[in-house]
């Protein structure tokens, strides 16, 4: 992640802690936006008490960052967030939702709407890092205008006791989405749902879900692509089982309502092949190092987490 801070929002527990905005990106609390811009109310389920409103009006080339933290015990967050990217604007965004330490017994509900106007572009990385006693549900509606492009990745390497990641992606004509969600869990219950609606001609949606279950983790991953127009889509839903008591359910589903649409999927759930482990051992790695290497490869590159504008490695949290 870049050290350059263009615009940012930080929330600690239930209070907005800091907002840094510039002339190209409007950042308000959701409550402020609800009051100031009546037109924004259509994006909220109800009058918001927490969360952020980000409105990218011009292309800046610098990242927008948000951080929603739980720092105290027994906090319940209900963050309603709106990200609005104006027509033709390109934005890069990095978000972290996290508990600052273990055993805070927090509850985080995130309800986000990302709206891209026609031909807008967004590259969005969202990292979660929680304590093992937290309870988290994050729901995102992604609404993509014609010709817009989104690269959207979600990662969670420290899962709470219960994690639900829910995404609804609505893609209009000639718009393109590349979505990936990767979660590694040692314990706890993880549910990952994503529905991608191809609503316009030449729309393209790709969904990649990666689930890695260690020890006693229980996963359910359900991905669905619904083609309503002559569009293309692909999903892959992959699970790695690394513990005897772990469990993964992968449910890929394709719904084609248009004869000119082309949608495909692949899915696999299993342990790391012994051939691969032995091969890596023959390159001098121990069995544990071999497994770690494969898992890291499966997850992709490590993501930093930004707290108060400072880059932190996720391992520093706990």
């Amino acid at each position: 992640m870049s050290d350059v801070k263009s615009a940012s929002y930080t929330q600690v527990d239930n209070e907005q802690a800091e907002i840094v905005a510039d002339e190209d990106v409007v950042i308000l609390t959701s409550h402020q936006a609800y009051e100031k811009y009546p037109w924004s109310r259509e994006y909220y389920d109800e009058e918001p008490k927490e969360g952020y409103f980000i409105w990218a009006r011009r292309t800046t080339g610098k990242p927008i960052s948000t951080c929603v933290l739980i720092c105290s015990q027994y906090v319940t967050q209900d963050a309603q967030n709106v990200i609005l990217i104006d027509e033709g604007v390109e934005a890069q965004m990095e978000s972290a939702c996290a508990a600052k330490m273990k055993s805070l017994f927090g509850k985080h509900i995130g309800r986000s709407k990302m709206i891209l106007k026609d031909n807008a572009k967004l590259e969005y990385k969202h990292v979660h890092s929680w304590g093992e006693d937290d309870d988290v549900q994050s729901t995102t509606d992604l609404i993509m205008g014609k010709g817009s492009e989104v690269i959207y990745s979600q990662k969670c390497q420290r899962v709470p006791k219960s994690l639900r990641l829910i995404n609804y992606n609505y893609i209009e004509e000639s718009a393109s989405l590349n979505y990936s969600a990767t979660v590694i869990a040692k314990e706890g219950s993880v549910e990952m749902y994503d529905d991608t609606f191809l609503n316009g001609k030449k729309a393209n949606g790709i969904s990649r879900v990666r689930m890695i279950a260690r020890d006693n983790a229980k996963f359910t991953g359900k991905s669905q692509i619904i083609a309503n127009e002559a569009a293309t889509g692909h999903m892959d839903c992959m699970g790695l089982i690394l513990g005897d008591d772990s469990n993964i359910i992968a449910i890929p589903q394709l719904v084609n309502n248009c004869e000119d649409a082309s949608i495909t999927h692949e899915a696999s759930v299993g342990k790391i092949s012994e051939d691969v482990v032995n091969y890596l051992r023959s390159r001098g790695l121990s069995e544990d190092e071999a497994i770690d290497l494969v898992v890291n490869g499966f997850m992709g590159e490590e993501e930093d987490i930004v707290i108060d504008g400072v880059k932190l490695d996720s391992s520093l949290f706990m």
Partner: peptide, 13 residues
């Protein structure tokens, strides 16, 4: 075998 690890990463390791 095929492995989802970049060759550069494996060589470094």
């Amino acid at each position: 075998p095929a492995i989802n690890v970049k060759l550069s990463t494996l060589l470094d390791k």
